[in-house]
Write a protein that binds this DNA or RNA. Structure first.
Lengths: 338, 338
DNA sequence: TTGTAGGCGTTATCAT
DNA sequence: ATGATAACGCCTACAA
């Protein structure tokens, strides 16, 4: 492998001068710089990060720990956001996933340490509380899409489920809907309660009575093996004599069944009933016809901001302990004004 | 940072002895070993990979390059497969994504080299041909879910779209379906032609005439901005006087619209029409009621096998140049026998 | 079975 | 503005 020394020899300078050129340090003549750069190109020299790390003890590497990568399809956009940030800022990303095993998580922390990473992004694929194995170690950590179970004050970045549901509810109210159904997300998801609260509060503030709201549970049970009542619940809701003019559901996936239930009853969307989802899982929201109005989880931004935040923590800037990113309302064609 | 030397001092042995213990080399008394291990625990020593790499020039690290088109949600299972393999085999994963930019791809190759990675897994999120920037560099590379555009012979691992579609077609034929509709995937996807060929060939071999098959194009145009005819096409198909008893569609996402089209026409699934998909996007296939019979893309296995293959290439074992993984038929309840 | 010396590719220090 | 030399943490080779 061609090293800094071969370059130095080829350029007729010392290794330190080559080092200066590589790192853009001052005190190098333009002429010398060019000579060195030519040698670098000619020899195809590429700096050895490992050697650099050994000397400088800054790896410029962040580790990502994820849990269940595939249950929540678009959540990997978090990782994409992190990677893009890293790419733009010359950082390297080491990635590992626990698959839910805490032994594996412990191993991962160890592996990260053996690479002397500068910080960890602890990422969950759905919003929840966690108990990171960091424990004794004192590696700067930022939680993304989750928060510590204990009252440790690790900085965290989460989606604003409340605001998202609030915006959707207002959107329906603004379009004249006064009887609204809500099919609840699995209560064990952290976002479920927030979304429901936002729905209730927003409707109440607007002046709707509790009786104008049909609120029903759509799913429950452990993630990945939940019981699913959505189709039945939606069907019942739509068969009421005083049926809602709009149905909001916990997420887009549940919405598929609301669509099917409505169509099975011969109701047209949005003419007979308006529907909104949550999450903006595009495999669903764009595939449904009419396309679904929903609130997009800001996965990509969570990653981007998380990386940025971790960077400032690593740099020693005291960082805000916790932060929330907005869910953007995506207007499509599943709602009409009444 | 606590190094091998501090451990040696604490245990009252030489650094080399500590090194022996760490690497499980022979010729260490049980007693010495224990003393060293205790020192390691007490001091919280963790080996420095960078230092190790500098000496031994084997990084035990694989790089993953992805393109990350987020239209194919479950394809990240490829990455999960790779990670699991890496975890089980003590390898580290460096990950980066090109976002489609070839400048960025070139940067990534450089970054990988500067970490002296042992090999690269070149992963695409949907099956296609690619032209990796590897170029001059001679890093062992395995392509996953894609193949080189040129006739270079990089080893590759791809899903067996043909077999998957064949199995689905047979499944329908075996259940008595003799009029079958097929809604084609976007032709620019590599799998599209294979799936269609398999459908045609299997039906023909079974004895169906071309007239028993309704084949229509469902989507076309650039990935991420395609034109979508599925709903219209499915509606037409189901309105024919001699309508198919079963419809197979390019993928699960398209199937949502087939369901909706069928229901809008008052047809029940599977009583009036049977439906199968492809891909097994569980956000769709499990959310649809009745749940969808489909063929699962072997994403996880692609990753697992790809990593395994890369490992053997790196080890110098001459490897099979190309390989295909089966798509497993997942039977649910969207098909009935006629 | 254990220890010593040297070197891997960098950057840091201190001269020049 | 540039260079000589040490040092980082580990492993290899060889010696004891």
């Amino acid at each position: 492998m061609v090293s800094i020394i071969s370059v130095a020899k080829a350029a007729g300078v010392s290794n330190k001068t080559v080092s200066r050129v590589i790192n853009g340090e001052p005190y190098v003549t333009e002429e010398t710089r060019e000579r060195v750069e030519k040698a670098i190109r000619d020899l195809g020299y590429i700096p050895n990060m490992a050697a650099r790390l050994i000397r400088s003890s800054r790896s410029n590497t962040f580790g990502i720990i994820t849990d269940y990568v595939s249950t929540t399809p678009y959540s990997v956009d978090i990782v994409r956001g992190i990677q893009d940030w890293a790419n733009a800022n010359g950082k390297t990303i080491l990635m590992a996933n626990t698959g839910g095993s805490s032994k594996r998580e412990a191993d991962i922390w160890k592996m990260f340490q053996s690479h002397r990473i500068d910080g960890v992004l602890y990422v969950t694929m759905y919003r929840r509380t966690v108990d990171p194995e960091a424990g004794d170690v004192r590696i700067p950590t930022v939680m993304i899409n989750c928060r510590p179970q204990t009252d440790e004050l690790l900085p965290s970045i989460e989606p604003d489920d409340y605001q998202g549901a609030q915006d959707l509810t207002r959107y329906l109210l603004d379009r004249g809907h006064r009887k609204i159904g809500y099919i609840r997300l699995n209560p064990i998801l952290l976002g479920a309660q927030l979304r429901l609260d936002a729905f209730r509060k927003t409707a109440a503030d607007f002046g709707l009575a509790e009786g104008d709201l049909s609120i029903r549970l759509g799913m429950e049970g452990p993630v990945g093996a939940e019981k699913n009542y959505v189709f039945a619940v939606a069907t019942e809701m739509l068969q009421q004599k005083d049926r809602p003019t709009a149905i909001m559901s916990g997420n887009d996936e549940m919405t598929i069944q609301v669509y099917i239930a409505a169509m099975a009853l011969g109701l047209r969307i949005p003419e007979d009933v308006s529907i909104v989802g949550f999450d903006d899982f595009r495999t669903v929201s764009l595939a449904l016809k009419p396309e679904l109005t929903t609130a997009a989880l800001p996965y990509y931004d969570l990653g981007l901001e998380g990386a940025e935040l971790l960077n400032s923590v690593v740099a020693g800037n005291k960082a805000p302990s916790s932060r929330v990113m907005p869910c953007k309302l995506v207007e499509r064609t599943s709602v009409r004004s009444v």
